[in-house]
C-alpha cells in the first residue's frame, strides 16, 4: 500500500503545475498509469481525495488513464499489446518478449483548469 505516498506525489506535482499555469481552480487531473506501474486504482482514488483536502487540488477529480502493456516482438518485428501482465509472450506468435515499450508509466499527463 504505497498509494498514499503516490497521492502525495500527484498532489504536489499537480499543484506546482497549476501555479505555473496560473490556474484559479483545478477541475481534474489526468494520470497515466501503466499496467506494470504497480498501482491499485481504487486505493489511489481513495487516497487522492484525502490528500487533496486543504490543498489547491481540493475538490478536483483524478482521472486514471489505464495504459496497457506493449512489448516489442522480435519475431513479428513490431510492437504488440499484451492482454495482461502474467505472460510476456506475443499473442500472435508466442515468442517470449522482454522488451517493454509501454506499461511502466506513472505520470500526470495533463490538468483541466479554470479559467
Amino acid at each position: 500500500m504505497h498509494e498514499l505516498s503516490l497521492a502525495h506525489g500527484i498532489v504536489e506535482q499537480a499543484a506546482e503545475a497549476a501555479v505555473k499555469a496560473k490556474a484559479e481552480r483545478v477541475v481534474s487531473v489526468q494520470l497515466k498509469v501503466g499496467r506494470l506501474a504497480g498501482v491499485e486504482p481504487g486505493a489511489l482514488l481513495f487516497c487522492y481525495d484525502l490528500v487533496a483536502k486543504g490543498t489547491p487540488l481540493e475538490g478536483s477529480r483524478l482521472e486514471i488513464l489505464d495504459l496497457p502493456l506493449v512489448v516489442w516482438c522480435a519475431h513479428c518485428l513490431k510492437e504488440v499489446e499484451l492482454p495482461g501482465v502474467q505472460s510476456f509472450r506475443c499473442p500472435t506468435c508466442g515468442t517470449p518478449c522482454g522488451e517493454i515499450r509501454q506499461g511502466r508509466e506513472l505520470e500526470i499527463a495533463s490538468l483541466e483548469i479554470e479559467p
Partner: peptide
C-alpha cells in the same frame, strides 16, 4: 458557465525518488 482549459504537464509522480 465557466470555461476550462487543458494544460499538458508530463510530470512523473516518482520524480523526486
Amino acid at each position: 458557465m465557466s470555461q476550462t482549459r487543458i494544460v499538458e504537464v508530463r510530470a512523473g509522480i516518482l520524480k523526486k525518488n
